[in-house]
């Protein structure tokens, strides 16, 4: 079986976001770019499965839709342990466009399990994985917090409101993964970083497709009022404020 892990290139999660060009884009000055945290966990779990010879996972490929400036993020995925990479050469403008490109890649190269993070930390769309599966007409399982292979059959755990379900779907399928899929993201070792330099990154030209959505302007969240401090010896005052001022208890 072959796994494809979809990776998105996002600002480091501690970045203080600033805008540029009349608040129509973000100011990229000084931003550290990283693999989207959920995608990094996906990749980690895919590699854990491949490490287990009994799983039958033969290869782990990463795919990314983005310009050449996102190469360092792809190399990082290879350094962590992906076997090879595919980059669709295009600005990733919005989810519909990105999902369409990845679906085109999957149509040409067969994969059994396609893994996507449940959201990206920049756009927070939570739609790319589901869109890929519908473009391909294959099953998808969302909010997957665990995946293992039992006798050649992928078995997933998905989160539902107030519980979990253990589910199976026939391959090929898209697993849309969330927290819990892997304990901690795998970190690249020096040997991995050296090997990543010679691993293949296949360049694919994008297919023209009309985007369905467009960000017109960004704004900052409304600032909160200054914190009102209450004496640590008198928490009853806090309860009074919550009850009579905020009216939330």
């Amino acid at each position: 079986m072959k796994i494809l892990v979809c990776i998105s290139n996002v600002p480091d999660t501690t970045t203080k976001i600033k805008f540029a060009e009349g608040n129509t884009s973000i100011d990229t000055t000084g931003i550290q770019w990283v693999i989207n945290p959920w995608d990094e966990l996906s990749l980690t779990r895919a590699l854990e499965l491949k490490d287990d010879a009994a799983s039958g996972i033969k290869s782990v490929t990463v795919v990314h839709v983005g310009p050449s400036t996102s190469e360092p993020t792809i190399r990082k995925a290879l350094a962590i342990g992906a076997d090879d990479a595919i980059r669709v050469n295009a600005e990733s403008s919005e989810a519909w466009f990105v999902a369409f490109q990845i679906a085109e890649v999957v149509k040409k190269e067969q994969f059994d399990i396609i893994m996507c993070g449940i959201e990206s930390s920049d756009y927070n769309g939570s739609v790319v994985g589901g869109m890929i599966s519908e473009f391909l007409g294959i099953p998808s399982v969302s909010a997957v917090s665990g995946i293992k292979i039992e006798n050649g059959q992928p078995v997933m755990t998905r989160e539902i409101d107030g519980g979990k379900e253990v589910v199976i779907v026939p391959a090929p399928f898209v697993a849309i993964v969330q927290k819990g899929i892997a304990k901690e993201p795998r970190i690249a070792a020096m040997r991995g970083i050296m090997m990543a330099r010679s691993k293949p990154v296949k360049l694919v030209e994008s297919v023209a497709v009309e985007p369905l959505t467009q960000i017109v302007v960004f704004e900052k969240p409304a600032p909160r009022a200054a914190c009102k401090f209450i004496d640590a010896d008198n928490p009853a005052q806090l309860i009074d404020l919550l009850q009579n001022e905020a009216k939330v208890i």
């Binding site: 989810a95 519909w96 999902a99 449940i118 927070n124 769309g125 939570s126 739609v127 790319v128 994985g129 589901g130 869109m131 599966s133 519908e134 473009f135 998808s140 399982v141 969302s142 909010a143 998905r158 989160e159 539902i160 409101d161 849309i176 369905l212 959505t213």
Partner: peptide
């Protein structure tokens, strides 16, 4: 929520409808 995230993107492709999420 989790159910919405499972359905909305598939529906988007099926109906060629753009999604505004969250």
């Amino acid at each position: 929520n989790n159910t919405g995230k499972a359905i909305a993107p598939r529906l988007s492709v099926r109906l060629k409808a753009g999604v505004g999420s969250g």
